[in-house]
């Protein structure tokens, strides 16, 4: 009997949780509106309870966050994204930002995740501010890249690296997820940049937007990074021209 009641409650919960406008738009259940930023039309969302959803082949899960951390990270995100205009976000198709804790993509802990199809980025807010601001820009680039691939061709980018370098394409060592800047850059801002061309571009974009001073110093010492930075800036310039 108890089992029957639990099964009924389970279905009831699933059905009710999906019957809302946010699920309709971005296919993530259990979210509520945290803030709507009228200036750039970004909608900040946060879980009212833990959720699990699918994006392509990945299972994505995230937890209801601590209220204090949400406010703190919301202000941080808003501050970081204020450098871009409303028209820019409309053009790159970014509209929803989900702030949550314990983000997992395919059962692997993640700092952020971009879903261009749903015009959404998910940010794990339970991380330090330094990493957090880098993650914001990193995920924004994945949205940009999806809609403006023509300005960021892989074939051109691949030629910047040393001829004997290959992107790993898979991660077995947890250190490879590190966003920490490398002491000896040798063409890459972080270990994670060595994973794929897309992540390398996103890391470069992230450094340009969050570590301007460091980037201006390092490109004088690292010719590969200099080319990569120029490439990303040119791509961004082309997008801004089209606004």
């Amino acid at each position: 009997m108890k089992l029957n009641i639990l099964i009924l409650l389970f279905f009831f919960t699933i059905f009710q949780s999906k019957a809302d406008q946010i699920y309709e738009l971005i296919k993530i259940p259990n979210l509520k509106i945290y803030q709507i930023d009228k200036e750039n039309n970004l909608r900040y969302l946060t879980p009212k309870k833990d959720f699990v959803t699918n994006s392509g082949i990945n299972n994505i899960s995230c937890k209801k966050p601590n209220n204090y951390r949400v406010e703190k990270k919301y202000l941080k995100t808003k501050n970081e994204l204020n450098v871009f205009k409303k028209k820019f976000f409309e053009k790159i198709k970014l509209r929803y930002i989900v702030l949550c804790e314990g983000l997992k993509v395919g059962e692997i802990n993640a700092l952020g995740f971009a879903n261009p199809e749903m015009e959404t980025i998910l940010l794990n807010i339970n991380i330090n501010d330094n990493d957090f601001e880098r993650v914001i820009h990193h995920e924004v680039f994945h949205i940009i890249e999806n809609n403006y691939k023509k300005f960021f061709p892989d074939t051109v980018w691949a030629k910047f690296n040393n001829p004997n370098f290959y992107y790993s394409g898979s991660i077995t060592n947890p250190e490879a997820y590190s966003l920490t800047k490398l002491g000896n850059t040798n063409g890459f801002f972080s270990e994670y940049a060595k994973y794929s061309i897309s992540e390398d571009m996103a890391e470069t974009f992230s450094y340009i937007n969050s570590r301007e001073k460091y980037v201006s110093e390092v490109i004088n010492l690292d010719k590969i990074l200099n080319k990569k930075v120029i490439f990303i800036k040119e791509g961004m310039s082309n997008i801004k021209k089209s606004l």
Binding site: Q21, I22, E24, L25, I33, N41, R43
Partner: peptide
């Protein structure tokens, strides 16, 4: 029921 987020969508 109301859906204010549908504005612009």
């Amino acid at each position: 029921s109301e859906a204010p987020l549908f504005e612009g969508e």
